[in-house]
Amino acid sequence: MEFEASFLDQVVQAVCEAGRIIVQNNDKPRSIRYKGRNDLVTDTDIAVEEDLKARLSRLLPESSFLAEETSGSAFLGDLTWVIDPVDGTTNFAHGLPMVATSVGLWSKGQIVLGVVNLPLLGEVFSAALGKGAWMNGESIRVSETRDLDQALIATGFPYAIEENIDEVLAQLRAVLPATRGVRRPGAAALDLAYVACGRYDGFYERGLNSWDTSAGVLLVGEAGGNVSRYDGSPYALGDADIMASNGHVHAGLQELVARGVS
């Protein structure tokens, strides 16, 4: 399905308008409930998701939703918005600004539009399939770093950390001494956007959901990067693990991460 350039602008505007809820609620007390020991949801998550669904429905009345808080068990249809209203809810609950809203549009087998908004950091990333990627309206590209020892890598930890602790630590033991460093902001959509704009040279994580990665995967691809699974096979939404990079360090990072895969 082809979309006019102005349509992406409308989607960006809708996502940014919903992001104002995060900004407005940032200094207010949080109402927190638990989906799991480390898996939080706040009233802000719900409010942003409902606001986005209303706005995006007006843009594409025929579309459906796969959204973390209110329709997380839905299926991808011919035209589906894939939404994470507040990626980094734990950060938000603790007053940290590394919070993202991720919106991807799935159309007949692929993500064709993606927006990652960082409302507390004042940055919005967008991409359209075959058209490129942007941050605050300016074109972005992945980094040119070619040597792993000069590469800054990001990662994340799965909610089921007890079940994955040995693998997580083994991977860190392999990646940390071989690179310039490892960062863990706690929001995968932000991590992928940072790979797309060249701040990170690579990223890997296990246990993510479709709404965590839908927009970010398109951002990285349109910015000239590489996205795969740990073993190098193509990544599909919902896969158990993901690796993204500038392309130059992909094989080396893949080799390092493989040392920790059980």
Rank of each mutant, 00 (worst) to 15 (best):
E222D: 05
I22D: 10
S102Q: 07
V220I: 12
M98N: 10
I32Q: 14
P234A: 00
A193C: 09
G95S: 08
L60E: 12
L66W: 00
R184V: 15
D45T: 01
L105R: 01
I21Q: 04
E4I: 00
S262C: 13
D51F: 08
L8K: 04
N226D: 10
P61H: 08
A14Q: 06
V227E: 03
V103L: 05
R184H: 15
A236C: 11
V182N: 14
N164D: 12
A93K: 02
R33E: 15
P158Q: 09
V195K: 12
V182P: 14
L120M: 10
A251D: 07
A128G: 13
N209S: 08
L208K: 03
D43G: 15
A151L: 07
I21V: 08
L105Y: 01
D191W: 09
A133V: 10
R141V: 01
D9T: 07
G238P: 01
D191I: 11
R229E: 05
V23Y: 14
L96C: 08
G221L: 14
E144I: 00
G137E: 01
A5E: 13
L52Q: 04
G122R: 02
W134D: 04
G72K: 06
F75A: 11
T44N: 02
W211I: 00
Y235K: 10
D87C: 03
Y194K: 15
D87V: 02
V124I: 05
F3G: 01
V86Q: 11
F7N: 00
V168W: 12
S107A: 11
L253C: 11
E123D: 04
A189I: 00
N25T: 03
H248Q: 13
Q150T: 09
D231S: 07
G247R: 04
R183M: 15
S63F: 07
H248C: 11
K108T: 03
D87Y: 00
V103G: 06
G132L: 06
L121W: 01
I165T: 11
E62Y: 00
S139H: 01
N246R: 04
A236H: 14
K35D: 13
L218F: 07
S126W: 14
E222I: 09
R180D: 13
L66Q: 04
G225P: 05
G109Y: 01
D231V: 05
A67M: 06
A170L: 05
V112M: 12
G247L: 07
W81M: 12
E49L: 05
L172I: 05
S57V: 09
A240Q: 11
S6F: 02
Q10S: 03
G252W: 07
D166T: 14
L172N: 03
G216V: 06
V99T: 13
F75M: 07
R55H: 09
M243F: 04
T42I: 13
L208P: 01
T145H: 02
N25R: 10
S245C: 08
Y159R: 06
